[in-house]
Design a protein around this nucleic acid. Structure first.
Lengths: 220, 220
DNA sequence: AAGCACTGTAGACACTGTCTACAAAGCTTG
DNA sequence: CAAGCTTTGTAGACAGTGTCTACAGTGCTT
């Protein structure tokens, strides 16, 4: 079906597929070429090095994540609800597309020798900036709404600036995404309370706790 | 100096050294053997496969972390202070021994085919359990102290169980360790406020914010 | 129509992890 | 002591990797 598309895109497609089925470790350059039906030297015309191809695959992952975020955002009305949907998307992506998530943060593969990369493309590390800005904006909106409600009945504790809270929250979700994807958190918390969902409930409860911690408990 | 020690330990030592100087990516089996002064087949007598040697190196990292934690714990008196020291150690380790930290969480390298490993050794994933228990215990102690102080003047909001808070806090520190080690957080937060420390102040401020979020603001 | 950049092929090279056969040492045991 | 055995390291082979180079088509420009 992707016959008419350029080989460059096809290589990335095949790479994504390979990363998802096999692990992120063994995405060989020759294997990708093989599955794309070209000789092992062909990718070199589009990516100067193996790392460059992997970077392109990783970038695809960030694009996917961005798309997921936008889809998640429109499903919720309040900023708090949007943050919750975003968090679920983040953690869910890490678990369901584990290989991609792993690859996306393999800085040793992606950026180290990437000076030979196309200079117009933003460096991969900066792919996280829009993600962070999204967090910051939503945290800010949560703050202003919360302030409005809190001024009515409680003391207005200032708390750290929105950017700091956003950074802390991002770190939290990122760490949780990883630990959850590997099963470390499930291992630590023990099995779900007997007859629960296969873990998704536990995950959502953890996400709620994280949001409560960073944004204050939700006002009911 | 390590002349009389067994080759097995020497291989791990050399591996750790290599991981720290070069990245965690290119710790070749032959390279380790070369630097240890033995032939490329020698490691096979002690580790059935390359992954097994890497697992041993990773386990060394978890041991180091445990030692750091114990050293950090004795330096502080209150449980909150201990948690703060622990957090600093965690994040600091990730940044100063980046290669080791990366390797420690490369589950694809470490555990995948590890059924051929020595069965008496605990699986590497479970190396995080003592770490988590330590967190849970400290969070519990923070809770009971906090409860005592809070009952005096404020409402006693229950909050999630200590294990959940510990899981959330661990996720937060883990994510922060990674993002900070790569420089992603520095990139997101921008440069330090002009003439500040080269970032350590920013890091400590972020750690404090994280602890405040999960344990409630410190009572002064 | 000639020239040219572009794209893919095929082979070479050094290197990797794993496997096998083999040599040297240490140890037990008759 | 000497024969046998396990242990530990060596050396070579093998398939596989990423990268490099020379070479063949293809399409486009002038």
């Amino acid at each position: 079906m992707t016959d008419e598309s350029s080989l460059r895109e096809r290589l990335i497609d095949v790479g994504v597929d390979l990363v998802l089925t096999e692990g992120s470790a063994s995405v060989g350059l020759r294997e990708i070429a093989r599955r794309a039906g070209v000789s092992h030297g062909a990718p070199r015309r589009h990516f100067p090095t193996h790392h460059a191809l992997l970077s392109a695959i990783g970038r695809r992952g960030f694009d996917d994540l961005e798309t997921l975020f936008e889809a998640a955002a429109v499903g919720a009305t309040t900023p708090r609800g949007q943050l919750e949907a975003l968090a679920r998307a983040y953690v869910g992506y890490a678990r369901e597309r584990r290989g991609m998530f792993e690859l996306m943060w393999r800085h040793d593969l992606l950026d180290s020798t990437a000076q030979a990369q196309a200079p117009d493309q933003p460096r991969l590390r900066e792919s996280t900036l829009p993600l962070f800005r999204r967090f910051t904006a939503l945290v800010g909106r949560c703050r202003s709404e919360g302030d409005a409600a809190r001024n009515a009945d409680g003391p207005n504790e200032a708390g750290p600036p929105a950017a700091v809270t956003a950074a802390a929250l991002w770190s939290n979700l990122h760490g949780m995404a990883q630990l959850w994807a590997w099963g470390s958190l499930q291992l630590a918390l023990g099995p779900p309370p007997l007859g629960d969902d296969p873990g998704d409930g536990q995950r959502d409860r953890l996400i709620a706790a994280v949001l409560d911690a960073h944004l204050g408990p939700v006002l009911s």
